[in-house]
């Protein structure tokens, strides 16, 4: 997702609110750096709150991901992070303030969403267990955005979420900005998601994207002999192996 420059520059301003463009821009970068996470759009939580379960993501195989993350926006004032582990079927809502009054509501939304989803697709994940993660809390009013991104990156990078604390917020804010700015510059070069990238030097690079995890691969790095491109679907080796989802 492209993030506008004017949006990015607001990150430096103390007391400015942080829009979902930044939240999702950074989460997307994190999920590219630490693969096997699916980021759901924050708008889903609003839909659920309004009893709307139209979006069911039936083309995705949640169990091919280590994590499903959903930033939750509350009244255009506050950010929380929902963290689901589809293989273990655990679910948590991380609230940077430490308050718990909204958490049960969103957990119930998630369970209802997953029940609707099970009705519509072959992936039946209905038995979700609530878990908690140790997190450090925000000590002032305007850093929930940074905190949920710190939690998200820590989770994806398999680091404890308590490493980052309030005092790290200004530094992390700059880091988020740098990541987004840098990523926009280098996005055209792209990075191949395979672990043994052969870094092809041909004049016209050809890329293919996995239809499940959305990661990009060089043509040269993936075995396309078994893939029928006319089917318009390609699933990478990891998704095929973990999801039994051959087209």
């Amino acid at each position: 997702m492209a993030v506008r420059e004017s949006t990015v520059s607001r990150l430096y301003c103390v007391g400015e609110t942080c829009g979902e463009e930044i939240i999702h821009g950074f989460l997307e970068i994190c999920s590219q750096r630490h693969p096997r996470a699916y980021i759901m759009q924050c708008f889903c939580a609003d839909k659920w709150a309004n009893d709307n379960f139209e979006w069911l993501f039936t083309k995705k195989r949640f169990t091919t991901f280590d994590w499903v993350l959903l930033p939750i926006n509350v009244d255009n004032q506050h950010w929380m992070l929902m963290v689901a582990n589809p293989r273990e079927q655990t679910i948590a809502v991380l609230n940077p303030t430490g308050a718990t009054q909204n958490i049960e509501f969103y957990l119930e939304c998630w369970r209802r969403f997953m029940r609707h989803r099970s009705d519509e697709c072959t992936e039946k994940l209905n038995d979700w267990k609530q878990v908690t993660y140790p997190i450090s809390l925000q000590h002032e009013n305007s850093s929930c955005d940074v905190f949920i991104l710190m939690y998200a990156e820590a989770i994806l990078a398999k680091k404890p979420q308590v490493i980052m604390r309030q005092q790290h917020v200004p530094m992390y804010r700059r880091y988020i900005k740098d990541c987004i700015v840098h990523n926009t510059i280098t996005a055209a070069d792209g990075r191949c998601a395979c672990s043994t990238c052969c870094q092809p030097k041909t004049r016209t690079l050809q890329w293919i994207q996995c239809d499940n995890c959305d990661l990009w691969f060089h043509f040269e790095c993936v075995d396309l002999s078994n893939v029928n491109l006319h089917l318009d679907r390609y699933y990478c080796a990891d998704c095929t192996a973990t999801g039994r989802m051959l087209p």
Binding site: E16, C18, F43, N73
Partner: peptide, 14 residues
């Protein structure tokens, strides 16, 4: 079409 969302400027306790 949805409206952009923002957060990080609390006036209430959440």
């Amino acid at each position: 079409v949805v409206s952009a969302q923002t957060g990080g400027h609390r006036t209430h306790l959440y």
